[in-house]
Structure formats: C-alpha cells, structure tokens
C-alpha cells in the first residue's frame, strides 16, 4: 500500500524503447507528459489531451494506448514503445518506409499516433483489407490528408512486411 500526497512524487520504472528509466513523478502527471518532458522523447504528440485524437498513441506492453489517458504511475514496470523506437538506427521500420513511399502524411503532427496504431493493427491482423484499415485507424485523427494516402501506406506496409518475411530463410 502506498499513498502519495499532493505535490509529492512516486518512483516509477519505465522501459522505453528498450531503455530503462527510473523516474520520480507526481502521480497526476500523464504518461505522455513524462515521456515528452522527463524522458525527452518529444516524438509523441499531444493533440487533444482527452483521448480522442490519438496523436499520443504509444505501445504499452505491445498494445496501443493513449498516453494522455494514462498516468505515468499506471505505466510503472511496463515496456513502452514510442515513435522513436521504430526505426533501427538510420534504417526505417517497414511501416515508416511504406508511409514515405505512399506520401502518407503532410504536417507530421498526427504521424506518431498513426504509426503506432498501424504497428498494432498489423501485428494483430497482418493482411487487413481497406475497410478494416479504415475502421482500425478511426481512433486517430488526421486533418491534412483525407486519410487515403495513409491507408495506401498501410497497404504498402503489408507488402513490404510480406516481402521482408519472404526473404527470410
């Protein structure tokens, strides 16, 4: 049992993109703020802070979650993947490469959320059809593209991932 009073902090351990962070955070602070401010990973964006736009989506233990709708203390001892954890050094993740090839995005603000949701979508359903892609990505808002290029990007990602798997011995 622990009780943390107003203004006090609590220790949390977050493993973000494979790196362990031992942090002291006030319980009221959102996971998104802690990722951005305490850990310094600003690729995760805040679009609405009330759980609708999806820009702040990260993977918590492999599953997509709105980081604005989690307290950092709720994420204690979890493994978190953010947009910064997708590429392998300079080598883009196939989903990033696919979005590049499909001209997926414009202003880039919603992008991290879409990419993380796409990672989750394709891990659960590696061959989604267009309407499944649209339904699954409906928790992420984009104001620039009209979505078509993003859906195209997911389809391209499916091909790239299949190719990558086919190439493996």
């Amino acid at each position: 049992m622990s009780t943390t009073n107003v203004g006090d902090s609590l220790g949390v351990v977050l493993t973000i993109n494979g790196k362990r962070h031992m942090l002291e955070v006030e319980p009221r602070r959102s996971l998104s703020d802690v990722i951005r401010e305490d850990v310094g990973l600003t690729g995760t964006h805040l679009g609405c802070e009330h759980g609708v736009c999806g820009a702040c989506t990260v993977l918590v233990d492999g599953q997509p979650a709105r980081s604005c709708l989690m307290l950092a203390v709720q994420a204690d001892e979890t493994e978190i993947t953010t947009i910064e954890g997708l590429a392998d050094g300079d080598e883009l993740h196939p989903i990033q490469q696919a979005m590049h090839e499909s001209h997926g995005f414009q202003c880039g603000f919603c992008t991290p959320g879409f990419l993380m949701s796409t990672v989750a979508l394709l891990s659960e359903n590696p061959q989604p059809n267009r309407s499944e892609i649209r339904a699954e990505l409906s928790g992420n808002l984009c104001r620039c593209t009209g979505y078509q290029s993003i859906v195209d990007g997911v389809e391209t990602a499916v091909s790239l991932l299949n190719e990558a798997q086919g190439n493996q011995p």
């Binding site: 049992m1 009780t3 319980p27 959102s30 203390v73």
Partner: peptide, 17 residues
C-alpha cells in the same frame, strides 16, 4: 488541460482497498 492534484493511493490488497 492537465490533471489537478490529488492524493494517490495504490493499495495492494482488497482489504486495504
């Protein structure tokens, strides 16, 4: 749009809760 301050309890058993 940030959470207001609150006292945070994290019980580890039903009785405590």
């Amino acid at each position: 749009m940030k959470n207001p301050a609150f006292i945070y309890h994290r019980p580890v058993g039903l009785d405590e809760t």
